[in-house]
Amino acid sequence: MPDLNFKDKIYKIFLAIIRDAFYCLFVFLLITGMIEAFKPGFLLNCFNLSWLLGLLLTLGAITVLFSYPEIRVSRKIKLLCHSAVFLTSVIMGIIIIYFLREIGPWNILAGICSVFICYFFIILSIKEKYD
């Protein structure tokens, strides 16, 4: 017989790792992003913004999809898709990342704000139904 309790533990540890990675990256990007706004090149001369934001969004999406086990994943995806603000934020992020070659402080701030808004509405849309 497989040990279901062990499976649950692994699942919880996996989720905690993803969540911690997400929060760490989020705080890191927030701090370095603010420095970038005042001192352009601080973060972006060393790291590719599209990779960092992509990683952040992926970790954020995994955290949301795997959290709240009471809600079905299909329902979560539906909620995410129904959130117009979420989509707008993603489109805004893509435009900033791929179409602006000369990235300046305002673009960085806009990028960070879009991630903020995006994550806020993901959480809100799921929490609302959950509560």
Binding site: F28, I31, T32, K39, G41, F42, L43, N45, C46
Partner: peptide, 8 residues
Amino acid sequence: FIFLLSQD
């Protein structure tokens, strides 16, 4: 962060 600081 220290790496970024040292680079900048």
